[in-house]
Amino acid sequence: MNPLAAIGRAFLALLEAMGRLVLFAAAAVSHIVRPPFYPRVLLRQMVDIGYYSLPVVALTTLFSGMVLALQSHTGFARFSAEGAVAGVVSLAITRELAPVLAGLMVAGRVGASMAAELGTMRVTEQIDALSTLSTDPMKYLVAPRILAGFAMLPLLVLVGDVIGIFGGYIVGIYKLDFSPAAYIDQTWRFVEVRDVVSGLVKAAAFGFLVSLMGCYHGYRSEGGAQGVGRAATNAVVSSAILILVFNYIITELFFAK
């Protein structure tokens, strides 16, 4: 076997896969803005992504805020800078932890479920049935899911911001003996609008990516139950990787000097 040919084939396969994904994303976005619209399907997806992900996002950001307060206090105590704990917690939560952790949690919960649902619909011919019933499956299945992910993750992150900062506050007040007024004052003084906005922009991008990968892998699923399982795994893994990559890119765009 010629190793150069093998590398070439792998590279071409990668380009082909990327091209397919970009075309799928472009088709999905075009269906989002063109009628007919399916408000009932969109509402169901918004509830599924937004409301039902609340507990997992709330718990994740709460404990992240709490542990961040503990760890940063340990570090800052070495420089007698314990007063910076509230600011560090709020910056870390709003800029990074809430959007990234919420994105990863939603990828695990929603991305996998979208891939499994659409994959099952593919292998049981339900997607074909939609086409025969004068309904474009991209418009009915994919567009509402991607729009719901794009719209709901920022709301989840906003809630996560508040709960994460509250987690730091609990540890600060009850464990590290901060004064409540001083802790809240520190938080207000440190956090800028740009910190929150950057987190929300990240959340919108992550919501889009998670839904896109869930739909893409589910929609293209083949090979029965094994194929559906593979689609769910691929959706979660690719979403997680893309979240981390885009987290860096968006951070660079917002905060690079």
Binding site: M121, T124, E125, Q126, D128, A129, T132, L133, S134
Partner: peptide, 14 residues
């Protein structure tokens, strides 16, 4: 397709 109906092998109910 609006003029056609199709009964799928497995039913393909939603």
């Amino acid at each position: 397709n609006a003029r056609m109906g199709m009964l799928f092998q497995g039913g393909a109910l939603f």
